[in-house]
Design a protein around this nucleic acid. Structure first.
Lengths: 330, 330
DNA sequence: GAGCGCTAGGAAAACGTTTTCCCAAGCCAA
DNA sequence: TTGGCTTGGGAAAACGTTTTCCTAGCGCTC
């Protein structure tokens, strides 16, 4: 009769424990005034029936669903993953679930996803994107829920979390200077990336703080092939150190160095950016690189989103520090 | 009065349109019997108020939440991403949201996640894991909802989707044979991976079907360093082709070949596994590789899960075909 | 002109919770 | 003994939908 295949509801518990559903609810949430005996009896029954309260019903009148959406424009790419990981870890501690949605820069898909998420009554939204450039951020304005931009540019009065590209570049360059290098080149990605421009600024800042002149600056695609080609161009008058815009470029540089008979780090020291495990460890020699701490970035975004859901009002663009990971290439 | 900041409910629409909430519901869902005039009037009001029905309330008595969970043990690693992408694309077409949960092989975290997901009334569950070996699959047995294992081993009467590792290996080996190669070695990963064992079987099967003897078989870690080392061991009597257990190993092999003065593909042809873009394109020469079609795998899992939610009962282990991507290394 | 069958749309129950309000019983003091 | 206060717990409304059932009115047919 009561042990059929239906998952038990609060009514089943109430009947089995001989109390009203209100009493079960109070026992469950530790609210109201109940005698310890009643509380215990109800809790025992709850465990016996393996009762699990239906969160949807609860949401219905708390107005909070306990879930948020994550819209990625990156097809869950390499950068989105660690962010997701940090975000999910933090939010799950607060019992908040994360819906993932992949929009891939298609406004229609984005709109459809947003509709579905809002219908599901998400309490907040996280927007991530590839880093190319400024994001138009369609109709995410004026949403009735808090929105956080991570690894992507939000609007003015939005809350945005980004890695401190400039600081990371400064870190890398200062490290090279501290190792006695004086002629430091920068081989990097396409300059329509804001990150590329910021890293260049950081490189220049560290150099000029040390009274050094910038050596070569080369822009190209984000690939190993470009790293190889760029280094080849520098071979006639090689610098004594190179700071690269990402790890793939750095690895290409390392390959050309080795094949040209130059030793790394003895002749030319090398620093990458991203600290992408598979690149830095396969590189010969193992690559010193700047870590953007994306997992921490995601975690911080999760904390702030959680706070905003609880009522906090936070805005502004926050840049979180990068870390230099020292390996054999310097 | 009615235009305050509260998001509009079906009651607001009913009042504005001068009908009852039941009528609004019928207009919204195209059910019941209503005159076209009433239907139109209600729909107009709905758009005017920008009303969006609360799916939670709906779920409450359809018993379906329109969301599923994805438990990954891979920290959203390289293999999980394309699966997620395919899964999410298919399910979102059915209006089903995907909660992501990262368990990282920690049973406590897995249990906590499962509790939260069940409390949120998910309609189904997808379990993904790193491919190491057989998954104990804690207490996912006997859940009241359909469960699908993707890229991980489910139990007997579960539904499991895996790539056809053996077929992929056969594809690669047959390709090498078709190019006239006769002495085909296999350098691969640790043999406690089921995938490693299956790929070896496929390699042997293709060889023996062509009347060829297996050349060297070497097991090691999944790294470029291992690829370099393994190839070095083969240098005294090099094979004329090598099928590698993944792209990283293949890339290491390619590096050693080049540095030893052997030409690829002229002297030694090379095939990888995974078709990982960043590896196959950075490899010199660009690497022929076996693609596991993980996005398609995820999509198929999504379709089947959707069907199971609608009542279908499907079990068994399904292996989806791999594809060979031909590039310069063969 | 009376009865019948349709049709359009309303009323209300149901889904599973939380929470507010209220009442009964018990206790103590006067 | 009576009155008041406290305490434990129940009843019911509320959250926003869907769906079942019912009724009022209309147009037919005989």
């Amino acid at each position: 009769m009561s042990d059929d295949r239906r998952t038990p509801t609060i009514h089943d518990v109430a009947r089995a424990a001989g109390v009203s559903i209100g009493t079960v609810s109070k026992a469950l949430n530790g609210t109201g005034s109940l005698s310890q005996a009643t509380r215990d009896r109800v809790m025992t029954t709850i465990r016996a029936l393996n009762f699990r309260p239906n969160l949807l019903a609860k949401s219905l009148h708390t107005g909070l669903s306990g879930s948020v959406g994550l819209i990625s424009n990156d097809s869950f790419g390499r950068f989105t993953m660690p962010i997701m990981e940090g975000l999910e870890r933090v939010l799950s501690e607060d019992g908040i679930g994360v819906f993932m949605a992949n929009a891939t820069d298609d406004p229609d898909r984005e709109r459809a996803h947003l509709d579905q998420l809002l219908a599901k009554q998400i309490d907040g939204l996280v927007v991530t994107s590839r880093r190319a450039d400024r994001r138009p951020s369609i109709e995410i304005q004026g949403l009735p829920i808090p929105v956080i931009y991570v690894f992507s540019q939000g609007g003015e009065d939005a809350l945005t979390f980004l890695p401190d590209d400039e600081g990371g570049a400064r870190l890398a360059t200062e490290h090279l200077i501290a190792q006695g290098r004086r002629r430091i080149a920068h081989i990097t990605g396409p300059d329509n990336f804001e990150a590329v421009r910021l890293r260049e600024i950081g490189w220049r800042a560290a150099l000029s703080a040390a009274g050094l002149q910038p050596q070569a600056l080369l822009h190209g695609p984000w690939s190993e092939a470009w790293g190889r080609e760029a280094m080849a161009r520098l071979l006639q008058d090689p610098p004594d150190a190179i700071f690269c815009g990402n790890d793939q470029i750095a690895r290409g540089v390392a390959d050309t160095l080795r094949e040209a008979g130059l030793r790394c780090p003895e002749d030319v020291a090398l620093v990458g950016f991203d600290n992408w495990d598979v690149m830095v460890s396969a590189c010969r020699p193992a690559l010193t690189s700047v870590d953007m701490n994306l997992t921490a970035l995601g975690a911080e975004a999760g904390r702030q989103l959680s706070a905003m859901i609880k009522g906090a009002r936070i805005t502004g663009t926050h840049r979180l520090p990068c870390t230099l990971i020292h390996r054999e290439s310097t």
